[in-house]
């Protein structure tokens, strides 16, 4: 069955007949981290009418000639068990952290380390957005990186990027990292 499945998927790939390359990106993080705001910012949509995500959102963004399919899945505790259903065939994980929510740094660190251990995300590059830098109480990205022990990640590429999804500041820098490190390597 596994063999056949693989075969069928490659067939379907051909059927699509698209010469354009596609990347599957999964956008995760705790509730209220700003995932949907970031997604809408990436798609240049209005970020003022966002409500807590109960399911998931998908947007396709073109970045340096590559189509990025970004999946933003709700971060509420009751939805987190569903995350792993969305990890298959993922090319990149974007993990969003509310830099001003110090009380939940430990919780968010635990969730991230669980994801890193997922079989489907083995070796998958991680981009961490230290979001909400527009808030006065936000911790700097370097501090968060330390708290998350990012320097111990040896099996994959990673990057932490300070940003404000609301204003869009820093978001493009993160996307540039993606295009330099993943898009160009895939081509």
């Amino acid at each position: 069955m596994g063999e056949v499945q693989k075969g069928l998927f490659s067939v379907i790939e051909k059927l699509k007949g698209t010469t354009e390359q596609e990347l599957r990106i999964v956008l995760l993080g705790l509730d209220n981290a700003g995932k949907t705001t970031l997604l809408k910012q990436l798609a240049s949509e209005d970020v003022n009418t966002i409500t807590p995500t109960q399911g998931f959102n998908i947007k396709s963004v073109t970045c340096h000639g590559m189509k990025l399919n970004v999946w933003d899945i709700g971060g509420q505790r009751k939805i987190r068990p569903f995350w792993k259903k969305y990890l298959e065939n993922t090319d990149l994980l974007i993990y969003v952290i509310d830099s001003a929510d110090k009380k939940r740094f430990e919780e968010t660190g635990l969730e991230l380390s669980e994801l890193i251990d997922e079989e489907n995300l083995k070796g998958v590059p991680v981009l961490i957005f230290a979001n909400k830098q527009d808030l006065a109480t936000a911790s700097p990205a370097s501090e968060i990186a330390e708290g998350l022990n990012l320097h111990t990640y040896r099996d994959r590429e990673w990057q932490i990027q300070a940003c404000s999804a609301v204003s869009g500041e820093g978001v493009q820098d993160g996307m540039n990292w993606i295009s330099n490190n993943i898009v160009n390597k895939k081509k």
Partner: peptide
């Protein structure tokens, strides 16, 4: 709706 439900998956 813009948002997808988990059951869709």
């Amino acid at each position: 709706e813009d948002e997808n439900k988990l059951t869709y998956t």
